[in-house]
Nucleic acid binder design. Structure first.
Length: 598
DNA sequence: ACGTACAGCGCG
DNA sequence: AAAGCGCGCTGTACGT
């Protein structure tokens, strides 16, 4: 039996295509009249309703498939599956574009029943690319349908318990409506992306969505025993550091709380007001307790003790204590979530847990291991932001250094210290690293001095910083002009090399103007690599298990590890070549048993 | 009691 | 006047 739902309209005068037909599918035979239309359709809109948000614990309830010219097919999973799975797979195994809103979500539930969908078009990502305004993202289907179609979707009517066995007619109708609306959205958004020069970055993002969906679904293995022994070791070091601090503060007096615990009233090293008072009492005249203001006093024993305490406190409270609780009860692995367009620049962000901020020390990363019979493959781009900056600024010295495969940090060291590149010392190269990253993005001399001391352990005087700064800009003319132009006529719009768009407010500073397109282009390159990689490991047992801005972690069967190293390196370098025409960008890839690289 | 802001710090 | 940028997580401070 065929059903009809009327589309809500913000503009009642527009009646074209204002109703959507749908049909509930309970068995493969129900699909017979529509098989030809679906297999030959140039695009299919797909939406799902599930009993929850976790693809490893919750179930698919409905799968809605909409193609132009036929009713929306609403598959009732409770009766259609599992017998109908091969029918469904056949219907979706076509070259047509698969249209979703937040594809990642639906793809994960579909991969749970063994179905892959590609290529993807994602109206949520499209909306985010079209409105690069920052601020809170209103990219839900209702908001997007309202904005691009003038359709007010009534959210209150369609929400219901998707876990009950029988579904109401209203639930089915609104489920169908979502898929139908997707088709209409495509008609508006596809040309709009092209009109704004966003089609290249859109296809990068869409291909990447599938890679991210798999990465989240597959998760990453954590060696809990190793993690726990690191926790114990760190707790011991934490307590030692605490005891040392007590020799300055005196031991705390405790008060019993109402809940039976006890808390220190007078001593709390997590309290910045308290720590500030303590520092001042010991003659350290800072007005903030930050690492930056403490840096000049790093020889003071109290400052050393405090720094040591903070290091261990951070390790325990941010990583060692909370992360074991995040291991998934079904898979036994961690499943970090990725926000694909998580940062304003176009970078991804990561949470629950944020695997992108796990400390670099081998103690920590060594706990992320390959399970038995498998290996990790690690690869990262070397100096990608510097190379992107060379491409975007057009600086000829920097570009030719990249082409000749020279070490950019050593080159800068030789230029600012006026020594031959072969005689650059380790310390000079380290200082140049700070100079490169700081000055390319518009840092002043004082900023450079503090930054290089804080981030690279390189102390320089203000005069030396001034000298480095002027020597740097005298040698890299292209960077100088690039900054000069941005300062003289600050643009209101910026683009990455693939067309990703930024809107700047009129008072945006040089740092943002220069940094955003560089950081964004580096993100475009990594996302492009991820999309390519996902298509090349489809139907294999190779997995992408971690993504860290300029780095990709894979987990593969032991016997495929050599192939995987080559595949990952080549794919990443190919992605970079396609986006950076003048600047080669190498990816270092290697096999390992853990993320520590050994 | 609760939510939000902020400082501080981990990563790139 | 001077300023690198982008994130997420933690505990404390502070608002209601």
């Amino acid at each position: 039996m065929e059903n009809k739902i009327t589309l809500p309209q913000a503009t009642p005068t527009d009646n074209t295509g204002s109703s959507i037909d749908y049909l509930v599918i309970s068995s493969p035979s129900d699909t017979l009249p529509y098989q030809k239309a679906i297999k030959e359709a140039p695009l299919l809109a797909i939406d799902t309703e599930t009993t929850g948000l976790d693809p490893h614990r919750d179930r698919l309830r409905l799968i809605q498939i909409s193609a132009p010219g036929i009713p929306v097919l609403v598959f009732d999973c409770a009766v259609f599956l599992p017998d109908g799975i091969s029918c469904l797979r056949e219907l979706l195994d076509t070259p047509s574009e698969k249209l979703f809103h937040n594809a990642k979500f639906d793809l994960q539930f579909l991969m749970g029943i063994g179905i892959e969908c590609f290529p993807v078009f994602d109206t949520m990502l499209a909306a985010q690319l079209l409105r690069p305004c920052g601020g809170p993202l209103r990219a839900g289907l209702a908001a997007v349908a309202d904005h691009y179609l003038g359709i007010r979707m009534d959210k209150t009517e369609q929400t219901g318990p998707w876990d009950s066995t029988s579904l109401t007619g209203s639930q089915l109708a609104y489920a169908a409506l979502d898929a139908g609306i997707l088709l209409k959205l495509y008609g508006v958004m596809k040309p709009l992306l092209a009109h704004h020069g966003l089609d290249r970055i859109a296809s990068i993002e869409f291909a990447c969505a599938s890679a991210i969906a798999h990465t989240e679904y597959d998760g990453i293995n954590l060696d809990l025993e190793q993690w726990d022994s690191l926790r114990k070791k760190t707790e011991k070091q934490y307590n030692d550091a605490l005891e040392t601090l007590y020799t300055y503060s005196g031991t705390p007096t405790y008060q019993l709380t109402l809940w039976g615990g006890e808390e220190a009233l007078d001593v709390n090293f997590e309290s910045n007001p308290y720590v500030l008072k303590l520092l001042n009492r010991y003659g350290i005249p800072v007005n903030s307790t930050s690492r930056r203001s403490l840096a000049p006093y790093h020889n003071q024993p109290l400052v050393q003790a405090l720094t040591e305490y903070r290091r261990h406190s951070k390790s325990l409270s941010s990583f060692l204590h909370p992360i074991p609780a995040q291991i998934h009860p079904v898979t036994g692995r961690l499943h970090p979530k990725y926000m694909q367009i998580g940062a304003w620049s176009g970078r991804m962000s990561c949470y629950n847990p944020n695997i992108q901020q796990i400390p670099r020390e081998a103690d920590f990363r060594g706990c992320f291991t390959a399970p038995h019979g498998r290996k990790l493959v690690l690869a990262d781009y070397s100096q990608i932001e510097l190379r992107v900056a060379a491409q975007i600024s057009g600086d000829s010295r920097m570009k030719s250094a990249c082409q000749k495969g020279e070490d950019l940090h050593a080159l800068t060291a030789s230029l600012i210290s006026n020594v031959p590149i072969s005689q650059v010392t380790k310390a000079q190269r380290q200082a140049a690293k700070a100079v490169n990253f700081g000055l390319i993005f518009g840092m002043g001399a004082e900023g450079l001095r503090q930054y290089s001391s804080q981030s690279y352990g390189v102390d320089m005087t203000l005069e030396e910083a001034e000298q480095f700064r002027s020597a740097f800009f005298q040698n890299y003319h292209g960077i100088n002009w690039w900054h000069h132009d941005l300062r003289e006529s600050p643009p209101l719009e910026g683009r990455t090399l693939t067309g990703r768009k930024f809107l700047f407010s009129p008072n945006t500073g040089l740092a943002d103007l220069a940094n955003t397109p560089v950081q964004g282009t580096a993100a475009d390159i990594l996302k492009s690599a991820l999309g390519l990689l996902a298509s090349r490991i489809r139907e294999s047992d190779k997995k992408i298990v971690g993504i860290v801005h300029d780095e990709i972690l894979m987990e593969v069967p032991e016997e495929e590890v050599d192939d995987a190293v080559v595949l990952l390196k080549n794919t990443m370098e190919e992605a970079a070549r396609a986006i950076l025409p003048d600047v080669p960008c190498e990816a270092d890839a290697k096999a390992a048993d853990s993320w520590a690289g050994k």
